[in-house]
Design a protein around this nucleic acid. Sequence first.
DNA 1: CCTGGCATACCGCCCGGTCGGTTGCCGCGC
DNA 2: GCGCGGCAACCGACCGGGCGGTATGCCAGG
Lengths: 203, 203
Amino acid sequence: MTGTAGQDRAERRSSLSVPDRLLSVATRLFAERGFERTSVQELVDAAGVTKGAMYHYFSSKDDLLYAIYQRVLAMQTRRLNEFAQAGGPVEERLRAAAADVVHTTVDNLDDTVIFFRSLHMLSPDRQSAVRKERRRYHECFRAMIEEGARAGVFRSDVPADIVVTQYFGAVHHLGMWYRPEGQLGGAEIGAYYADLLLASLRP
Amino acid sequence: MTGTAGQDRAERRSSLSVPDRLLSVATRLFAERGFERTSVQELVDAAGVTKGAMYHYFSSKDDLLYAIYQRVLAMQTRRLNEFAQAGGPVEERLRAAAADVVHTTVDNLDDTVIFFRSLHMLSPDRQSAVRKERRRYHECFRAMIEEGARAGVFRSDVPADIVVTQYFGAVHHLGMWYRPEGQLGGAEIGAYYADLLLASLRP
DNA sequence: CCTGGCATACCGCCCGGTCGGTTGCCGCGC
DNA sequence: GCGCGGCAACCGACCGGGCGGTATGCCAGG
């Protein structure tokens, strides 16, 4: 019982560890108000800790932002690999992956909003690290489209790069207009988006 | 001869008026470094004027940003109206408008980058004003798609809203990856994008 | 006793914004 | 033609605040 008073404060509103709580709160606030509009003081107040705690785990505000990017990139990469390495015809693999990326984007809207709105707030080297990882992600998608084009199930008169950037542009933009209280859920929108993608690729 | 020194300073690097120079420089800097990372002092230094001059024409930094949005919105609306009110079959009108929006986006990349990255920096009422105007823009596009669906030249099993948001998401995202020094120009990308859009709409 | 895990008090910088002053120009009475 | 008044355009020193970041202390657990 010695730590009760301390735990009342440290664990209020959540059972997560301090760094995880900071990440969680920061994700919400950065998405709501923007990175620059959220002061470190507001952040730690909302997380129920102090600046000292934050700077104990993160070396700077920028470092905290980068941690969010790392978490998002890890999740995206893991997800895509599951779908790309599955079996079945390439058009079904592409459809499943395309629908899933919409679904997970909608399920983690705050992450997506931050990802594309605050990239330029990262230090230049971290910016390029994120872009590089993101590029690998696109390559995986492009490979599926080119595989389908060689197999003759997709058209080949449009560069696969164009198709990929167009599709992911649409996906990233979900954070600008999608609201959970709307009529369509993530699964429905994912199905529509994937269907439009496959339709545009018909030979 | 009394005014010579004054004009040397006032007109250096450009023949534009002071407010126009501020708008032009602000657009470039906000796109390069971001709105919050660009201080008013840097801005006026780059424009060759002083703070006093800026606050004479704009009531705040936010006001300057809003002026940029107004300029962009006016241009977009004017452009789209030209294409929507043209004659010819609906699929050709849609194709022309869809290709043009890509072309003009690429030609004004700085505007686009600011537009989707800094919306949350505007005051709430101005944010909703921009969103409202932008909504009217989307409606115009949606109307063409629904017209084509009624005429039977476009499929009707996907909501027109979904198609519009997907397409404009892709267009907005151009600012994240397009570089003028790349291989493809705005016209080529516009043609590809419009072609993919039309293909995805085939019944 | 010492180290990790915090809290607290504090710092210096620089930001957006202000305000009194100056300059140059234009209309006007004479 | 000329002095005068007035006003828009612009200057730049200055300000209060709040920002990101830090130095130090304290305390429980091993």
